[in-house]
């Protein structure tokens, strides 16, 4: 489903940062992969390369068999199949909750008003904010906003969902409600964990492997700091 081969990403502005260095990874359909690592290790950059919000400088990325770094690829088609949830929600402030969820369905998927509406209602029910459909995002709590953002991404019926630290901007008491929604989507909390540091994948394995006997020294250090 996702096949990343030897990608590199370097930022030159405001100064040279090698955000991804020779990263390769593969994710099968239905798999839940969690990427961990210290701040600035390149987690967001890796995720953003997967839907070409950032363009990798080198290497290949195949999404469902399509080479997204190929100039001839219609990236908008690929993006419609790859949902993304951001740390800072990024809801459209000038649109109601309902319109936030129906907008892309209508302009990208070309669904009818009724169809988009029905889809939005079903998803809002699933994320537990059915009573706020005509409210603007700034009248919602952070947790509610993030749940709307998840519903907005799901409405496109994507094959892949990317979550970039979806709870890190939330007050502690709201983290639970967002995680509950995410647990509903995933069969497992994680099939596989990838540990990144300084733009590289340092260690990869099952959650048990990580928390019981990690091999790499950097992994051990990182885990000892957060646990």
């Amino acid at each position: 489903m996702i096949d990343v081969r030897n990608i590199h990403k370097t930022f030159y502005v405001p100064h040279k940062v090698r955000a991804l260095v020779d990263v390769s990874a593969a994710v099968r359909a239905g798999e839940v992969v969690v990427v961990i690592g210290p701040s600035g290790s390149g987690k967001s950059t890796l995720l953003r390369c997967l839907n070409r919000l950032e363009t990798a400088n080198q290497g290949h990325i195949y999404i469902d068999g399509i080479d997204i770094l190929d100039k001839k690829t219609d990236i908008n088609k690929v993006r419609a199949e790859v949902g993304m949830v951001f740390q800072s929600f990024n809801l459209f402030p000038h649109k109601t909750v309902l319109d936030n969820i129906t907008l892309a369905q209508r302009v990208v998927r070309r669904r009818s008003r009724e169809e988009a509406h029905a889809k939005a209602m079903a998803l809002l029910e699933k994320v537990g904010i059915k009573d706020k459909i005509n409210v603007y995002p700034d009248q919602l709590s952070g947790g509610q906003q993030q749940r709307v953002a998840i519903a907005r991404a799901l409405a496109m019926e994507p094959k892949i969902m990317l979550f970039d630290e979806p709870t890190s901007a939330l007050d502690p008491e709201m983290i639970g409600e967002v995680l509950d929604v995410m647990k509903k989507l995933a069969r497992e909390v994680a099939d596989r964990v990838i540990f990144m540091d300084e733009g590289q994948i340092v260690e990869e394995g099952t959650p048990e492997h990580f928390f019981i006997n990690p091999i790499n020294e950097r992994t051990k250090l990182f885990l000892s700091q957060i646990l």
Binding site: L53, A149, M156
Partner: peptide, 16 residues
Amino acid sequence: RGQTEAARSLGMNYFQ
């Protein structure tokens, strides 16, 4: 910038 990114990540093109 997050507004553009959210819209583009949903598959909207530049004009949409």
